[in-house]
């Protein structure tokens, strides 16, 4: 019998964002999004900027994660995130502004590191997406 719940803990250097049992969690892995359910194989993965979703008893929580690591064991998931904001905490206007600034930088400077720029943009796109806003 597989356990029905999996313990999810999301911590950032600033705070503990989530510490509870959930049915399922979807995380933005460095090599693509993946879902974790109780009984998942042990896994260590890097995280890319993106949206994380945790589901428990029909309730859904959406968060924006900037980057970090996750350790999965059959009964628990530990997410070490650089930053993690719940959808209701996200400052949408600020994310939009930052995105425009970065785009401005990209169009002005030719020598900008494209990977870094993509990474920075993804962070803010994830925040917009998690807060339920499009661009």
């Amino acid at each position: 019998m597989l356990p029905e719940k999996i313990h999810l803990e999301i911590v950032t250097p600033q705070r503990r964002v989530i510490d509870k049992d959930v049915d399922e969690v979807i995380l933005p892995g460095a090599e693509g999004s993946f879902g974790v359910r109780p009984g998942h194989a042990a896994l260590l993965a890097g995280l890319a900027p993106g949206v994380a979703v945790s589901r428990s008893a029909g309730q859904e929580e959406v968060m924006a994660i900037s980057s970090g690591y996750v350790e999965v064991q059959p009964d628990r998931v530990v997410v070490l995130a650089e930053t993690c904001e719940k959808s209701e905490e996200i400052d949408v206007d600020r994310a939009r502004r930052r995105l425009q600034e970065i785009e401005g930088e990209v169009s002005k400077t030719a020598e900008a590191d494209p990977d870094l720029m993509r990474f920075r943009m993804m962070k803010h796109l994830a925040r917009l997406q998690a807060s339920g806003h499009s661009r």
Partner: peptide
């Protein structure tokens, strides 16, 4: 102990995690 799946490879993950651990 159960072997882990690594994504990306273990060496690359450790390259990021270990210095972070020392600094933290």
């Amino acid at each position: 102990a159960v072997e882990y799946l690594y994504e990306p490879a273990a060496a690359e993950l450790m390259r990021g995690l270990v210095p972070r651990f020392v600094s933290f």
